[in-house]
Structure formats: C-alpha cells, structure tokens
Amino acid sequence: MYGVVIAMIPAILVSVYFFGLDAARVFLISILACLFFEWFIQKYLIKGQVTINDGSALVTGVLLAFNVPANLPAWILIIGALAAIGIAKMSFGGLGKNPFNPALVGRVFLLISFPVQMTTWPKPQALFEAPLTDALSGPTTLGFFKEGLMKGESVQEIMHNPGFPGYVNDFLGAQGGSLGEISAFALLLGAAYMFYRKIITWHIPVSYLGSAVIFSGILWLVDPTRFIDPLMHLLAGGMILGVFYMATDMVTSPITAKGQLIFGTGAGLLTILIRVWGVYPEGVSFAILIMNAFTPLINMAFKPKRFGERMAHG
C-alpha cells in the first residue's frame, strides 16, 4: 500500500504547485478524516483489530483528495471521507471485502450531493506567480468541450477559445480540474514506479486505454468537428488517474488476467460513452464503479486456464 502512496507523490507535488496551500489543506483534511473514520469504526463500532497502519485508509484519503477541487469546503470533504470509509469500505467488512473503490464512492457521493461545490474549479496558477484568490475559477478541459458542444460550437472552435489549456498544459498540469487529475505527466511518473515495483500489472491500464483510444478514435474519424480526438481524451480529465490508480485497485478488479482485460475494455468504452453522450463532462468514476459491480461476475465467468483442461496430445 505504501508503494502506491510513493507513486502518488509527484501528482501531489504538482497539485500543490498549481493550487497552492488550498491543495495542501484538502490533502491534509482528507487523509486525516479517512484515517480517523477507519480508526473510529474499527475501534468503537466493529470493536475489532485496528489496522490503520496497513496504509489502505491513507491511499483512500489521498485518492479522495485527488478527486475533488482545491477549494472544496472542509465539511464537504469530511462527509466524503465518511462515505468512502464508512459506507464503501467498512460496511462491507473492511479492507479486501468492499465491492466498490472507496475513494470513487466518496467522490461520486459528493458529486451528486454537492454538484455546485464539486464542479467549481479554481484556475491553476503556478505557485507565487499570481495572488491566490477565490474569484478565479473556470471549467475543466472536458467542461470546455461539454459547454461548447451544447452551444453548437465545433471542437476546433472550442480549442481556439482563449481560456482553453491545450495539449501541453493538459500534459503538464496547467488545467482546471480535481487535484490529482490535472497532470498526466506526474501521474505517469508514479505509474512507472508502480510498474517497476510490480504493484500493478499491465492488463487493466493497457486494455482501458486501448479501448478508450479505439472507441474515441472511431468517433473522431466519423466526425472530427463533433467528437474530441483520442489524445485529448487521454490527457483531459481523470483518465490517467482513473486508469492507473483506481481501476487497478486489486480489491475491486477481477483476479485473472483475462478478467482484467475485460474489465479494462469495459471501463474504457463506458468512459467515452459517458463523456460523449452523458450529462456529466467526466465519466471515469462512473465507468470504473460500474465495472466494479461487474467484477464478481467477471471472476465467475473468466476462470484461469486450468492445467490439463484439454489434451495437448497431437
């Protein structure tokens, strides 16, 4: 678990760089709240062994913070932590028994309950470049597209908008959005570390990204003015964060390699589906949660290849 925390450090630093002390405040509150709820529930409600040292609540805390805007009020954040740890994790029996990713449940819970606060994104400002004020806020990259397309503008027109971040800023992190999702670069750095330490395997990320790229690519080829190109899909929003840090959560993803490929493919399709035709501009959280629900079925349907299942003779 602590390996995952180490992998998340670059993204934490980037978000603190762009959102300043607000970001640090969100991280602190989210982590402390998650640890507190885990400890409280284990100690006083379940009256069992307290295992906050295993790092799972810490990971949930950081991931929850990754999934909210930097200016989110503290009380909403604490409610999110309660939903993540209390509802999504502990009510199912704690670590390893939860069917849904706790941090994502927390985020979706907040997104539906407090839509205004959850979608008011502060504009990124490199640290000390400009004074920090609450007044500056703007849409995320995907928000730009959703709003523009609703108004009937073409993709190309939207991308020439003055406030639009563009590919390079999306990659490095100078875009509006949740704390963790802004910088694809920092997230990929952490993902490389997780691959190196063998914390995650390639199956889910590759199938997830692959199916998302292929599906959005087909749409893009059909009509490049109405559909966003695949690269932008990858860089914008929570795609990289979701693919490497949340879809790969072992507890809520299938056990076998085959199952993981199905899981990733399904999540990729759903993400693009929700982004293109859904009400919300972003679809990663919903896609992963929906595939989480399918995990037990996938586990049942896709068994590993048994030794000696068929005769290898001749």
Binding site: G94, L95, M250, V251, I255, P304
Partner: peptide, 17 residues
C-alpha cells in the same frame, strides 16, 4: 486481509484459484 490481488492465481502451476 486478502485484497484479492490475484497473485496466488498467477503463480498456481495448475491454473487454479
């Protein structure tokens, strides 16, 4: 707690779970 990482499934030489 088991976190269903699936390593046991990966290493089982008989392809069991």
């Amino acid at each position: 707690n088991c976190i269903r990482c699936g390593r046991c499934v990966t290493v089982c030489p008989m392809g069991l779970e």
